[in-house]
Design a protein around this nucleic acid. Structure first.
Length: 644
RNA sequence: GCCGGGGUAGCUCAGUCGGUAGAGCGACGCACUCGUAAUGCGUAGGUCACGGGUUCGAUUCCCGUCUCCGGCUCCA
């Protein structure tokens, strides 16, 4: 019997029944066969060695693709488990999936792994890899599997909970063996351990079984695997590059902010350079909010506990709030974790008419949230933050248009900060617990969806992941080195207007309840700046740079002219420093470059005589000498102009 | 909060198998007055995170606390 195999280019070849993926790959080319790790048969990933028994479309998965690396890493995880079980008798192994750029495996062992343990495990893995062990697939009944894994409680739990997505069927599971090691696994795997050419263990960490902190904490080992030493080194190099961009490190080097121990965890102080950066960012925020029809409101940092009771925060968010303080004969006050109740009170301060809506309230509001100590991370996760928060109140009819506007707003804002690559999550109504009116949920969700489509933003639907009070969009950006960050949120709220009994008067002189839209564009100013620092590696575009121009006098006698030049640039609106230190020109240039200042102007005898400057732009190796001062001012003011 | 690893000068780090410490950069001073990525010389600066214990003696060993880092968890 012969079967027909369709190749990705559409051509069809005839093979004997039972041909393997390896055979097919070899028939196409020996290089392809060498690079093959698995096949995709009618869209299903399978081992190379599995016989193909009917007509199918085939795709050879090679090791230099993401899908190929995924399989390789999964196999590497198996080898790691094998090594751990060899070295630590009695160890229980749980799950070991591939992840982005690597893999991990969770173990239950007597003692947590130390860095020395990782070295030992890595050595043992190298032995397993060089002994060229085949990965053999087998399908067994669930009850047989329970026998095989009788002393592995986590595997038993998986077998008993198995469903179609984890095994081959409800009553059967697939397992993979190599020599004396066997693991429950859906596969596929590389044909043999020898195909793992570049594996490295990175670190160990505690991790809860099934991600639930009520479950036992296991020891997770993270590793990475690549198709070649070269790719592995490139990856390790990328990690180093990312470390160089770390906003905590750059914050110190560029003198932007610090986290003094005396202050407390998760709390930052901003130095003058960082303060200027904040000012530029906040000024921009105010301007664009104004441009998009928002009005400014303001609110205090504390409020009576009753307010947080009404808003529901004490019911749903109390764990993240600072404890109360007793003031004025037992009156409880709370520090604010969010701005929404205040904006609601502004709404309530007047009887509202449909003529006023939509009302878009905006505030750069400082809020305090008690975050658990282990989650704090530089500026990206803090306990005191400033939200560029807004709350829009509109009618049901206005909702679709408002949501589209809000999305356009955040995309414009992110784009003007240099982020071009967006992705979004659309979170829809939870199944069980939700409030509001079903029809309105539909309208809001569809409006968000069509706004995303219209804005051409790729998005995923997080079905049922929304808050109980309304659907939302989270916008993520991709930074300069490809990392994704969640930034803006547009969140519909059907609950707060109810809780506070908000109303407006309709054209027919009835009372109706407005709908509310929460939106944070930066997320928080702190976090946004942290992401900006990492995105630009501290080399901010001119309009954001705390110092835009450093003026370098060649010798003391040029200081006076340097200051005159500085005054001219400052009058044109630039942020200028004059370096009058007792250093050589080379050293002053080096300092300005190290501080990532976008422009340097050197002034010497010839410039004094000609009313000119020598300009060197960041990133250029060369300078332009003798540029007339007026030309330089015009050029730099244009180059460093803020987007709005 | 949980698991692991750290905390030595402003920064980056070395060091002390228990006898109170050192470099580079930075800062400060002096000289140099210089045309595009480091001028030279000199000086100051440390309760070795904090508290307790062991010891003749603790920065070093032990315990606790704080804090940072990597994860987990959390992120209505």
């Amino acid at each position: 019997m012969a079967i027909n195999i369709t190749l990705p280019d559409g051509s069809v070849r005839e093979y004997p029944d039972g041909v393997t993926g390896t055979d097919v790959a070899e028939s196409i080319g020996s290089r392809l066969a060498k690079a093959a790790v698995a096949v995709k048969l009618d869209g299903e990933s399978r081992d190379l060695s599995r016989p193909i028994e009917s007509d199918a479309a085939i795709e050879i998965i090679t090791e230099n693709t993401e899908a190929g690396r995924h399989i390789m890493r999964h196999s590497a995880a198996h080898v790691m488990a094998q090594a751990v079980l060899d070295l630590y008798p009695g160890a229980k192994f749980a799950i070991g999936p591939p992840i982005e750029d690597g893999f991990y495996y969770d173990f239950q062992v007597e003692e947590p792994f130390t860095p020395d343990d990782l070295d030992r495990i890595e050595e043992r893995m190298a032995e397993i890899i060089s002994s060229n062990q085949s990965f053999e697939r087998d399908v067994v009944s669930s009850s047989d599997a329970e026998g095989i894994f009788s002393d592995q409680p986590f595997k038993l739990e998986i077998i008993r909970g198995v469903d179609e997505s984890e095994g081959v069927g409800g009553s059967e599971v697939s397992i993979y063996r190599n020599v004396d090691f066997v693991d429950l696994c859906r596969g596929p795997h590389v044909p043999s351990t020898a195909r793992l050419k570049a594996v490295k263990l990175l670190r160990s960490a505690g991790a809860y079984w099934r991600g639930d902190e009520n479950n036992p904490q296991l020891q997770r080992i993270y590793g990475t695997a690549w198709e070649s030493k070269k790719e592995l080194d490139a990856y390790l190099n990328r990690r180093e590059e990312a470390a160089k961009r770390d906003h905590r490190k750059l914050g110190r080097e560029l003198d932007l902010y610090s986290f003094p121990q005396e202050l407390g965890s998760g709390l930052a102080v901003w130095h003058p350079n960082g303060g200027m950066l904040r000012k530029v960012v906040e000024d921009y925020s105010r301007q664009i909010h104004e441009d998009y029809g928002f009005v400014f409101v303001n609110s205090p940092h504390v409020a009576k506990a009753d307010l947080w009771q009404t808003s529901g925060h004490l019911d749903f968010y109390a764990d993240n709030m600072y404890p109360g303080m007793d003031l004025d004969e037992g009156q409880q006050y709370r520090v604010k974790p969010m701005n929404c109740p205040f904006h609601v009170l502004v709404y309530k301060s007047n009887a509202r008419s449909y003529r006023e809506l939509p009302l878009r309230f905006s505030e750069l509001g400082a809020v305090y949230r008690y975050e658990r100590s282990g989650v704090l991370h530089g500026l990206l996760r803090v306990r005191g933050l400033t939200m560029d928060d807004s709350h829009t109140f509109c009618t049901r009819d206005q909702l679709p248009e408002e949501l589209a506007q809000h999305l356009e707003f955040v995309l414009t804002l992110l784009g003007e900060f240099g982020f071009e690559d967006f992705e979004a999550d659309l979170s829809t109504r939870p199944e069980d617990k939700w409030v509001g009116d079903l029809e309105l949920w539909e309208v809001a969700t569809e409006s968000l969806r069509s706004a995303l489509v219209a804005a051409n933003v790729p998005f995923q639907v997080a079905e049922g992941e929304g808050a109980f009070y309304g659907p939302k969009i989270d916008v993520h950006i991709k930074d300069a080195i490809g990392r994704r960050w969640q930034m803006s949120t547009v969140q519909v709220d059907f609950s707060l207007p109810d809780r506070f009994e908000l109303e407006f008067t309709t054209p027919g002189n009835d009372r109706e309840r407005p709908v509310m839209i929460h939106s944070a564009k930066f997320g928080s100013v702190e976090r946004f700046i942290g992401v900006l620092v990492e995105h630009y590696a501290g080399a901010f575009p001119g309009w954001l740079s705390p110092v835009q121009l450093t003026i370098v006098p060649v010798a003391d006698r040029h200081n006076e002219y340097a200051n005159e030049v500085a005054a001219v640039f400052r009058a044109a609106g630039l942020r200028v420093e004059v370096d009058e230190t007792d250093e050589t020109v080379g050293e002053k240039i080096r300092r300005a470059i190290t501080q990532k200042h976008p422009a340097i102007a050197v002034v010497g005898d010839k410039d004094v005589a000609a009313n000119s400057v020598g300009v060197r732009m960041r990133g250029d190796d060369a300078e332009r000498r003798g540029l007339p001062l007026g030309d330089a001012v015009a050029e730099l003011t244009a180059a460093f102009a803020a987007p709005r």
